[in-house]
Design a protein around this nucleic acid. Structure first.
Length: 726
DNA sequence: CTGACGAACTTTTTT
DNA sequence: AGTTCGTCAG
């Protein structure tokens, strides 16, 4: 194996990281500095240079996509079989451990993983049985509570509720939930991690075994680890310091779901012999973009210092566009994209990034009207669809009759005359005798219920010996799901297609017998469905404009990026502004957003925006003001010169590149009144400079609403207020 | 069981 | 505004 192939292409810092001695290493990797590269080459280096068997290497990521990419790149780099290499998500690895040692983890061999919507259903049901009002105890909050406890490694038995009645109630739910999961052989996502941690913690020989086995442990996106993930890593590596972590404190954007940047500091304390290597050279963006990113993030306190730089030139200035309202914003963005595509660029190289999903609509509408193909990220995933979950629930019942969540899901889907009453009875029996719903059903005297049991029995018999995909097909057809979903008025066709797609997915499913010794093919497929649902998204092949939240943009890059809705209250989110820590996370989010852009970055905001059915007049985001003027070009200012305010109805369908060569279309809501129109820059003796956002009334009663730069929105009567047109 | 209506929401999301 | 969720009547 050619070692040079592994090290030659690296810069100094990368080289240092890849070839660092086997001790704890923290690679502080800025955006676009080649962190995946370092991980991949580090692993390759160990295998080739130090003859480390792939069998003794563990690499943990957060997403399946990242895991897959890493494995692919290692295989590409070195010609060594990597089946023995453990690369996977925290959840995937935890799951694997639990399968191997199910008994020691106190789990049945047939345990199944439940996703968050399954979990929510179970919790709802528990609230119900406990007779708890779901107004005072919203199921979502209970779910959040339980997961938060598990993320911190806290079991119900560890909680001392003191005298707080609320806490007592929540504890009761947590306990019942644990009991039900245990009885049904169900494991939620947080449980996977906690259980895997406890497995190692409580089984000395097992821990010893894995400590011996994994000579090198690697972690990607370390800043996103939560308490239990850290604890688990710590168990595995504490005596050997063989932990190689890559992360960027500035890109920690998941604090709200338990990620702890503090883990990076904890690492430094608990692995005193560690080495820190900073990757600061950026290979993605122009210098101007990096400067802006650096300035924005510099305002955060307590960072591990790090500053991105590049050898490529300044590049274009960052463009800021001030829109009248959200429609104008969308219009502007889409026109720019249109011009960009027209000059020969790929649609998939441009992205519209927003803080919240609700913002996508305006852009979608415009794109649709313009006929530009686009793709919105973050919708329902394939395995999350109701029809798919129904089919999977039948399959789960085939493999485990006592899976209460699945039982309840399909016992009356399609409807077979088992109403709320019958289900209540079942629950009653189940609770009294502490048995599963299935067992309860065998004791209930009901024709309909007996019919359901019979159906499952017969499906089970018929499925015997069939290929996986034939099993799936059998279940879908025989259970009546096919007919049931076909009846859906407007979505029937789509649902049938999805079910067909599920059969197809089963056909394509690769069952790795060697790796899943304890699992049947069906069980393995079901696990795959819960644990890897994300990757099943449709055709990425088509060249599409990309629309997504800032969160989902992490890790991606585009030549042309629009960061839209740069307004106080939106971004930073109104819910974060009064909390320093949350505001810092918003700022990191902004940093993430800016660093997605390779060549060109647009920041846009609207002076007036319809939000929750009301007209709001937000002020420009503080992040916008942080970026120094010399890096920015105000797109609107350029336009101003050419704009005629009297432009009214006949807004031309703009053909030219907008806005530099075309007159700025005035949004229909904007009506000229005398000298004032929305968008007009004005100046007031007392309030200073501002922009007209709305006009009303005529003659003496004419008034305008002005958004002043320094004092915010004011309504002024034209008859009294002295306004100067700028 | 379906459909209709009204109330209550409304940051971010992977596993 | 728009969506989702729960309740109620048919």
């Amino acid at each position: 194996m050619d070692i040079h192939k592994i090290t030659d292409s690296l810069n100094n810092a990368q080289h240092q990281a890849v070839t660092a001695p086997s001790q704890a290493v923290l690679v502080l990797a800025g955006a676009g500095s080649g962190k995946t590269r370092v991980l991949v080459h580090r692993i390759a280096w160990q295998i080739c240079q130090h003859n480390v068997s792939p069998h003794s290497i563990l690499a943990v990521t957060f997403t399946n996509k990242a895991a897959k990419e890493m494995r692919g790149r290692i295989e590409q780099l070195i010609n060594v079989p990597t089946q023995n290499l453990w690369i996977g998500t925290f959840h995937g690895i935890a799951h694997r451990l639990l399968r191997r040692h199910a008994a020691q983890a106190h789990l049945p061999d047939t345990f199944q993983v439940m996703d968050s919507s399954d979990q929510l259903r179970v919790i709802k049901r528990i609230l119900n049985t406990l007779n708890m009002d779901d107004k005072t105890y919203p199921p979502r909050e209970m779910q959040w509570y339980i997961n938060a406890q598990k993320d911190e490694g806290i079991r119900a038995k560890d909680i001392i509720p003191y005298d707080d009645p609320n806490e007592l109630q929540r504890l009761q739910v947590y306990e019942s939930y644990e009991a039900l999961c245990h009885r049904s052989g169900l494991v939620d996502f947080a449980e996977l991690l906690l259980r895997a941690y406890e497995l190692l913690r409580d089984n000395a020989e097992l821990l010893e075994h894995y400590q011996q086995r994994f000579r090198h442990v690697h972690v990607d996106e370390f800043q996103d680890t939560n308490t239990i993930q850290y604890a688990w890593l710590r168990l595995l590596t504490k005596d050997k310091d063989n932990l190689f972590i890559v992360g960027d404190d500035d890109q920690s954007i998941y604090g709200w779901r338990g990620a702890k940047i503090a883990n990076m500091f904890r690492f430094q304390q608990q692995y005193p012999n560690h080495q820190v290597i900073k990757l600061e050279q950026n290979y993605r963006s122009t210098s101007n973009i990096l400067k802006a990113a650096n300035v924005v993030i510099a305002k955060n306190q307590g960072r591990m210092s790090k500053e991105l730089w590049t050898t490529t030139g300044d590049g274009e200035l960052i463009s800021v566009y001030t829109a009248f309202n959200e429609q104008d914003e969308a219009h502007f963005v889409i026109e720019r994209i249109r011009a960009w595509i027209k000059s020969g660029n790929k649609r998939s190289e441009t992205a519209i990034l927003y803080r919240s999903n609700a913002q996508s609509r305006q852009f979608e509408e415009r794109l649709m009207a313009t006929g530009i193909p686009y793709r919105v990220y973050g919708g329902l995933r394939f395995f999350d669809r109701a029809e798919i979950k129904n089919a999977l629930a039948y399959l789960r019942l085939l493999s485990n009759r006592h899976d209460d969540a699945s039982f309840e899901r399909v016992v009356n889907t399609p409807t077979r005359g088992i109403g709320a009453k019958a289900i209540d009875d079942l629950r009653q029996i189940a609770r009294e005798h502490n048995v599963s719903l299935w067992t309860a059903a065998t004791r209930l005297n009901s024709r309909a219920v007996a019919g359901f049991l019979q159906l499952i029995h017969s499906l089970s018999e018929q499925a015997e010996g069939l290929e996986l995909c034939d099993k799936v097909e059998l279940v879908i057809k025989t259970s009546g799901l096919m007919d049931f979903h076909q009846k859906d008025k407007d979505k029937g066709e789509e649902k049938i297609e999805n079910l067909a797609e599920l059969v197809n997915a089963a056909k394509l499913f690769y069952f790795d017998v060697g790796n899943e010794e304890n699992l049947s093919e069906l069980e393995s497929f079901l696990t795959h469905a819960s644990l890897e649902s994300a990757e099943q998204q449709g055709d990425e092949a088509e060249d599409c404009v990309q629309l997504m939240t800032l969160h989902s943009a992490k890790g991606l890059e585009f030549n042309l990026v629009f960061l839209v809705g740069m307004e106080e209250g939106l971004f930073p989110s109104g819910q974060s502004v009064d909390d320093v820590a949350r505001l810092e996370e918003e700022r990191r989010l902004c940093y993430v957003g800016i660093t997605r852009a390779r060549a060109q970055l647009y920041l846009t905001y609207a002076e007036s925006r319809r939000l929750y059915g009301r007209e709001t007049y937000p002020r420009p985001s503080r992040f916008l003001r942080d970026i120094p003027e010399e890096l920015v070009q105000d797109v609107r200012m350029q336009t101003r010169v050419r704009t005629t305010y009297s432009t009214t109805r006949e807004e031309p369908k703009v053909r030219n590149a907008y806005p530099s060569t075309a007159p700025k279309p005035v949004p229909s809501s904007s009506i000229a009144r005398g000298a004032y129109a929305t968008g007009q820059k004005v100046s007031h003796i007392k309030f200073g400079a501002g922009v007209v956002v709305s006009c009303a009334g005529e003659g003496d009663k004419a008034s305008v609403i002005v958004n002043f730069r320094n004092v915010g929105v004011k309504q002024l009567m034209l008859a009294y207020a002295k306004l100067d047109v700028l």
